[in-house]
Amino acid sequence: MTKPVLEVRGLSKRFGALVVSDGIDLSLRAGEIHAVIGPNGAGKTTLIAEICGGLAPDAGSVHLNGRDVTGLPIRARAKMGLARTFQISALAMEDTVLQNALLGALGAAGRPWRFFRPVLSDRSLRVVAEAALDRVGLSHKAAARTAELSHGERRQLEVAVALTLTPTAFVMDEPMAGLGTEGGARMTALLGTLKHEAPILLVEHDMDAVFALADRISVLAGGRVIASGPPDAIRADAAVREAYLGDEA
């Protein structure tokens, strides 16, 4: 078995009496999509925050490419290629689509302290940004104001910004949220190809997408991983059915 790109060991976090992460172990290996599912309040958002650096765990550790990043801030993890997408699009709405992608390229290149040269004339940044837009199918909208994009296009742009970081791993928070059938299918196809560039930790509510895409699924409930394995095993797991899937599966 190959060494995991992203690994979470014994992650625990409590807010007062509420245990939101209870000894979570997770790994993400090269080339895979590892989906994390679970009912509302299962601790998925907390888990993402702990992995990406927004929230410090009480115990446990996060490793990226074998390096312990538990104490590092969001910025440092991003620089190591941990590319996160947001559940609610976090985009600069007044800026153009290209400018949003350029921001990611700028972060990856690590040279924000240029005060005079127009950022749009920076060839090397534009190449990265335009390639990312092209990859998600937004090239034709590069000059559009982000506020004018449809919801689905904003979700695509979220992924494009993550792509500009030349990721070592993606952490995606409900990329399917609010997408219709067609948009969902497009996103599913996109994620299916992206996983070969960098593995994806996918937190998602859309069960169709999860079972279509995931190589492995972990089920979170009450801050604990109650089941983990390939999709078929999860579908058959009695505890999972009770906790989450109900009669749906």
């Binding site: 969001i74 910025r75 991003a78 996160r84 985009l91 400018q99 921001l103 972060g107 924000p112 910004v161």
Partner: peptide, 16 residues
Amino acid sequence: NAARQVPGRVETVGLD
């Protein structure tokens, strides 16, 4: 410009 509009985003692409 981005720090004004979406502070959270700026951090997640590795910028201060």
